Structure formats: structure tokens, C-alpha cells
Simulated scan of single mutants.
Amino acid sequence: MAQEHTEQPGAGDGPARSSLIPGVKYALAVSSGKGGVGKSTVAVNLAVALRQSGAAVGLLDADIYGPNIPMMMGVTKPPEQRDGKIIPAENHGVKLISMGFFVPEETAVVWRGPMVHTAIQQFFRDVLWGDLDYLLIDLPPGTGDAQLTLTQLVPLRGAITVTTPQNVALYDVRKGIMMFQKVNVPLLGLIENMSHFVCGHCGEKTEIFSYGGGERAAQAMGIPFLGRIPIDPAIRTGGDSGLPIVVGHPDSPQSQAFLDIARKIREEVEEAKPTTAPPLESLLKKIKAPFGKG
């Protein structure tokens, strides 16, 4: 298993040039402390939203055990190979790679840590990403081998954390935030997904998972709050059909939320320095108590 470390040279200091991804300007991690918060859905729509803003974008599915990015991006044809290298698949203007292209759909990936490390390394070393402004890396939930491998392999410009508003999700988000703090990865901010539901018939707003927990958590941890994404059946339909909502319904409030968050991310990355997490001891004191009742 990869060993934990506390320093990552160059993290947040500039473009993510490295021997593994020399053409990538900025590498960004999309993470969550727990599953079920819609992290991959957010990663897909943010990637397409960044592409629509004029950036060259790649999307790396680092969720080795549950690779669903190909389905959500509407890609069924596996990547091609050239001179021993892999050409990323592409759809909606975004280049992508995923373990889902290389294992049968019904086959479970049952690997120990070293095999996960090797697979993620190959996604950098053996894939011809070309010149990209952004490479979004969709991490699996938690703080395990994939996360540590990533921080050891490439210099990350920053991490984006996805949560839902209720305290049970925010409890696990704290662990993810502290993990990035330990490995010296700047925090671009926190996104509150499934923030609320607006009835399509009467317009009534229902806060299914409480409301405002993400913003309170961001304030408590001293990191930017990037925005709220409403829950809507069209987002789920887009993921199932391979047509992300920012493509299928670009004028919807949900799409506008993704586009606004993508704009904030570009501003954080290109115009300002991402927020570095406060010292671990200070962070533990701030988040020892719940973020507030919802």
C-alpha cells in the first residue's frame, strides 16, 4: 500500500506540469467523504461546463471499483491504442479514460492497494492526454489508496469536495478535508449537491436533505463555498442516458448552477490562489462540534 506523506512539491503553486502529464496545465481532484452524494454526476457536468467555457478538458475516472463515467458521458466504444499508448475516448468535447473501458460491465474489480496504484499510474503514464487546460480526476469515496496514490503521482492544483446538506454526510466530508490538508493539497471549495427540490407542478421548494449544511461546513473549515445544486430528475436522466444536463437542458436552473460553479473554479484556479486548509490542529478544534442542526 502507498505510504502516507505530508508534502507535495508544487501543489497549488502553478500549472501541473509533470513527467506523467506534461501537457496538462491544471489537475483538479473531485472528491467526497462518502458515497451517494452525486460526486461523479458533479464531476461529469463540471467537466462539460468547463469545456463549454472554452477550456480544453479531460476527465479521469479514478474510481477503480465503481467506474461509471463512460455511461454518464455516453461513451461505449473503448479507447484506441497507438504505439503502445492509449488514446482517450471523447464525447461532449471532453477527453476521458476509465477502468470501465477495460473490464466487462458485469465483472467486479477485486484488487488490493498496489494494483490500484498501478492502474492509476497507467492512466497518467500510458494515456496520451495531449494539451489540456484542466484534467478533472473523479476520485472514489473516502480517503484510501486511490487518494494517496494520486497525491504522490501528480501535482494537484486543488481539490473540490462534494457533499449533501445533512450532517451525516458532512461528518464524513470532514475526514476528506483533513486528508487533503495532510498531503498539502489546496482546497478549491465545497459544493452542496442535492440542495433542494423544486416541484415542477406547483413550484414548492422542498429541502429533502435539510439545507445549508454545505455552506456552514465551508465556513467552519475556512474554505470557499462554491454553490448549491438542486436535485432534479433531469440530472439523473442525463447521467443514465449519457447526456449530461448541461448539454441536454443548458438553460435549466440546474445547468446554470453547474456553469456558475465552473466559472468560480476557473477564477479560483487562474485568477487567485486556492485556499490552503488551516493547520490540522486548528481544523480539528473548529469541526469537533456539528456544523449546525439542519
Rank of each mutant, 00 (worst) to 15 (best):
P224V: 00
P230R: 02
I229R: 07
E207L: 11
G200C: 04
E207R: 11
L226Y: 07
K205N: 12
G200D: 12
A218T: 03
R216G: 08
P224S: 00
E204H: 15
G227R: 03
E215P: 08
Y211G: 09
I223K: 07
K205A: 07
G212Q: 06
G213W: 04
G227V: 05
I229K: 06
I231R: 10
A217N: 06
G227M: 03
K205I: 14
S210I: 10
I231D: 01
G213D: 02
I223Y: 10
G227F: 11
F225H: 04
F225R: 05
S210L: 07
I229L: 09
G222N: 04
G213R: 02
R216E: 06
I208Q: 01
T206P: 10
F225E: 00
I223R: 06
E204Y: 15
E207Q: 11
F209I: 13
G203P: 08
F225S: 01
E215W: 12
A218H: 02
G222I: 05
Q219P: 11
T206I: 15
S210Y: 12
I231L: 11
I223P: 06
H201F: 15
T206Q: 11
G203A: 05
L226H: 04
F209D: 04
K205Y: 09
A220V: 11
Y211L: 09
G214W: 10
A217M: 15
I223L: 01
A217R: 03
Y211C: 08
M221R: 10
G214Y: 12
P230M: 05
G214S: 03
L226T: 04
A218F: 01
G213P: 07
A217S: 09
G212F: 13
I223G: 03
I223V: 14
G213H: 06
H201V: 15
G222D: 01
A220I: 11
G214M: 01
R216M: 04
I231S: 09
F209Q: 08
P224R: 01
G212R: 03
G214T: 08
G203N: 03
F225N: 04
Y211T: 14
P224L: 00
H201S: 15
P224N: 00
G222R: 06
G222S: 02
C202K: 12
H201I: 15
I208M: 04
H201G: 08
R216Q: 09
R228E: 15
R228G: 10
G227T: 05
M221W: 07
G214E: 00
I223H: 07
S210M: 09
I208A: 01
P230F: 06
Q219N: 13
T206K: 14
L226Q: 02
G213Y: 08
Q219C: 02
S210K: 13
I229P: 13
T206H: 15
A218N: 03
G222V: 04
Y211H: 15
G212A: 03
A217I: 13
I223S: 02
G200M: 01
A217T: 14
R228M: 13
P224D: 00
G200A: 07
R228L: 12
L226V: 04
R228D: 14
I208H: 08
E215S: 10
G212Y: 11
F209E: 07
E204M: 09
G213F: 06
G222H: 02
R228P: 12
G200V: 05
A217G: 06
Q219E: 12
G200Q: 05
I231T: 12
C202I: 12
G213A: 00
I229C: 09
I231C: 08
I229H: 06
